[in-house]
Design a protein around this nucleic acid. Structure first.
Lengths: 213, 213
DNA sequence: GTTACTAGTTAACCATGTTAACAATCAGAC
DNA sequence: GTCTGATTGTTAACATGGTTAACTAGTAAC
């Protein structure tokens, strides 16, 4: 039953073009969803659950990851990066502080601001989690030839950019897209720019240099 | 600053192998994240926000999608498919019913069960949403050659399976992975089987045939 | 026909998000 | 210098979506 073109949605997917083209569009949509779910589940949620004794949210972990790479941050920056309101960020930080993963300290320059940094315990958690991610990646790396990996990465990059570029005018939401891993987020180039990147570039002198620990 | 191998995480990612291999693993992990986020945002969240006057959750929409393709369902099946507890499903259905998108009707065979079906309004919403998804896909389809699309889809499928297969023993969580689009979910083959599939196969005679309309 | 199980809902609670209001501090006009 | 206005972060009040436990109604087994 329900062969590709038969059901109600086969119609909805037909944007013109031959049946083969429709079928390709259909399969691409489907496996994009599956891949996205698999990545989220196996490379984000599961490693985090295994690495952390107390159950952390992905948001909470992203915050930790961000700070473990970029030194101290202000609460507002963190809120921007996570894409939530300042009170939400504040509460998230409360929780992480109770767990002993981050540390709040008053900023010396601006006494309104509070600087956040990762504790040793938090840093260890991040390391454990990254190690688990790496482990889960390895069957994937073993199952492809190096040249295939290279091409797959290029496909992923190109298609991500094509997807995001269809935005009428980039009002710059943040993908929380692992940009914290490295500089040069390609997403930032086509949208308004991810807040994390902004923080690192413009705020580098004011924030990054003021170490807490 | 922070070139790929310099920062704290370059170390964490090194699972052995040459620097080039590590770099490839690194890029693959990163662009997998980016692609997953882009798919979620542009092919799931945004189309839904645009198609629906009242803000629906992805869960709620998945439920709608599921039922619009497979006729009526029981509350418990829906809970399994969404991966939430029965009370949560019940409340979700409450909301969708208040919005006039689904209809509850007593089952004639088993008077404990309630059968759910999509209203005409709900069906229109699903169609609008699918159309928007298709629209957002088109730049992607235009930006690739047909042969590239084909290969990209194969990569996505292979890597999804490799990722999911690394699970020690599939205790069958559901990816909500767009399996509702078509039969033959490849994920179901390697895990315990997605609950939706189970519902369609074993429950087809008891549930699918009893139309509520 | 009594007993045990199943389907669904309700109640009480928790986590996480929001907006509005607030205290403290900074920065510029005068 | 000081007053006014913007900013930083927190608290308070509330909405939403999830959980488990308890309950009702109905089915099924013996």
């Amino acid at each position: 039953m329900a062969q590709t073109g038969d059901d109600g949605l086969g119609q909805g997917l037909s944007g013109g073009g031959s049946a083969d083209e429709r079928n390709e569009a259909f399969r691409l949509l489907r496996f994009s969803h599956i891949f996205a779910s698999a990545v989220r589940e196996m490379l984000e949620v599961k490693p985090l659950r295994e690495a952390s004794p107390s159950p952390l949210t992905l948001s909470q972990f992203h915050l930790l990851m961000l700070m473990s790479l970029n030194g101290s941050h202000q609460v507002g920056e963190v809120a921007d990066f996570l894409g939530v309101s300042p009170p939400a960020a504040s509460k998230t930080i409360d929780k992480l502080e109770r767990l002993g993963l981050v540390v709040r300290a008053p900023s010396r320059g601006d006494r309104r601001a509070t600087l956040l940094s990762v504790s040793a315990e938090g840093r260890r958690l991040v390391e454990r989690c990254v190690k688990l991610k790496t482990g889960r990646m390895s069957p994937l790396l073993k199952g492809f030839l190096p040249a295939e990996i290279e091409q797959f990465v290029r496909f992923l990059e190109r298609s991500s950019m094509l997807l995001l570029d269809s935005e009428p005018s980039g009002h710059g939401f943040c993908l929380r897209c692992a940009a914290y891993i490295d500089t040069g987020c390609p997403v930032g180039d086509i949208r308004g720019g991810c807040p994390h990147r902004k923080g690192r570039e413009s705020g580098a002198a004011g924030v990054g240099t003021e170490e807490v620990s």
